[in-house]
Computed example of a mutant assay.
Amino acid sequence: MSHGDESGYGDDAVRTDDPYSTIGGTRQTRTRLPDGEGDGYGTSRRPARKPRSLVTVVGVVVLLLAAIAFANMGGGDRNDNGDGSGGSGSKPDSSSTAATGTKPVTGKNGTIPSGFAHDEQGAQSAASNYAVALGSVGMFKADTRRSIVQATHDPAVVENLLAAMAKAYSPNFFKNVGLNEDGTTPSGLTFVSRTIPVGAKVIEQSGDTATVEVWCTGLVGMAGQGSTKPVTATWFTLSEKLKWVGGDWRIESSSQKEGPTPVNGDNRASTADEIAGAVEGYGGFTYAR
Rank of each mutant, 00 (worst) to 15 (best):
G110I: 02
V177M: 12
N160R: 14
A131W: 10
E159C: 02
A131F: 03
T106F: 02
K103S: 13
V149G: 02
S96F: 06
K108E: 11
F174W: 08
A156R: 11
K108D: 10
N109Q: 13
A131E: 14
A126T: 09
N172V: 08
A168P: 06
P155Q: 01
G110Q: 08
P104L: 07
G107R: 15
G122M: 07
D182R: 07
R145E: 00
K141C: 02
A151N: 02
T106P: 05
V149K: 03
T100S: 13
A98C: 02
T100Q: 04
H118G: 01
V158W: 09
D182K: 06
S94G: 07
I112N: 05
L162D: 04
S125N: 12
E120N: 14
A99P: 04
Q121R: 15
R145N: 03
M165L: 15
G107D: 15
S125C: 02
F140H: 13
G178E: 11
D154P: 03
Y169N: 12
A164K: 13
P104H: 00
A126D: 08
G110D: 01
A99R: 04
V132D: 06
F173L: 14
I112V: 11
K141R: 15
A168M: 13
Y169W: 14
S170Y: 06
A99N: 02
S147G: 05
